[in-house]
Simulated scan of single mutants.
Amino acid sequence: MAHICQMWVTPAVRGEGIAKALLSEIRTWALDKECECLALDVAPCCRKYFLKKLRRKKERSKQTL
């Protein structure tokens, strides 16, 4: 299992794909290490933003079906 904790992207550069790129590289690393699970802890101050973004992504995926 790989566990990511205390990841932070400063508000000034959010939305530029930094976290997405970093998580993609971490996922690749975890797959290379044959990790069966990858966990991400989101800082309490960012959970609202993170969950909002996940909901938007889910809504977009429903619209494309």
Score class of each variant (00 low, 15 high):
Glu16Phe: 07
Trp8His: 13
Gln63Val: 11
Lys33Ile: 08
Lys48Arg: 00
Arg47Ala: 05
Ser61Asp: 14
Leu40Gly: 10
Cys5Ile: 08
Thr28Glu: 12
Leu23Pro: 07
Ser24His: 08
Arg55Phe: 12
Arg56Thr: 00
Leu31Pro: 04
Lys53Thr: 12
Leu23Val: 02
Lys58Phe: 06
Glu34Trp: 10
Leu40Trp: 07
Gly17Tyr: 03
Cys37Pro: 03
Cys45Ser: 13
His3Val: 04
Thr10Leu: 12
Leu38Thr: 01
Ile4Cys: 12
Thr10Tyr: 10
Ile4Gln: 05
Ala43His: 02
Ala30Gly: 10
Val13Lys: 01
Gln6Gly: 09
Cys5Glu: 10
Phe50Arg: 02
Cys37Phe: 04
Val42Trp: 06
Lys57Ala: 04
Ala39Ile: 13
Arg55His: 11
Glu59Met: 01
Leu65Trp: 12
Lys58Ser: 09
Ala2Lys: 03
Ala12Lys: 11
Arg27His: 14
Glu34Ala: 14
Ser61Leu: 15
Lys48Thr: 01
Glu36Cys: 06
Glu59Ser: 00
Cys35Gln: 15
Lys53Ser: 13
His3Ser: 00
Cys37Glu: 05
Leu22Ala: 15
Asp41Thr: 03
Arg27Phe: 14
Arg47Ile: 01
Asp41His: 02
Arg55Tyr: 12
Cys35Tyr: 15
Ala30Val: 07
Leu54Trp: 07
Ala39Tyr: 14
Thr64Ala: 12
Glu25Asp: 10
Ala21Ile: 00
Leu40Gln: 10
Met7Gly: 15
Gly15Arg: 02
Cys5Gly: 06
Pro44Gln: 06
Lys57Ser: 01
Lys20Leu: 00
Leu51Tyr: 13
Arg55Met: 12
Thr28Tyr: 04
Arg47Cys: 03
Leu31Arg: 14
Lys58Thr: 06
Thr28Lys: 07
Met7Ile: 15
Leu31Thr: 12
Met1Asp: 03
Lys62Met: 11
Glu36Asn: 13
Val42Pro: 03
Gly17Val: 05
Trp8Arg: 08
Ser61Gln: 15
Pro11Asn: 00
Ala2Tyr: 06
Glu34Ser: 14
Val9Gly: 11
Lys62Asp: 02
Ser24Thr: 05
Ile26Trp: 02
Ala2Phe: 10
Asp41Ile: 00
Leu23Phe: 09
Ala21Tyr: 10
Leu22Pro: 09
Phe50Val: 06
Leu65Ile: 14
Arg47Met: 07
Val13Cys: 02
Cys35Ile: 13
Ala21Thr: 13
Trp29Pro: 05
Leu65Ser: 13
Lys48Val: 01
Ile4Pro: 03
Thr10Asn: 12
Gly15Val: 03
Glu36Lys: 14
Val42Asp: 08
Ala39Gln: 13
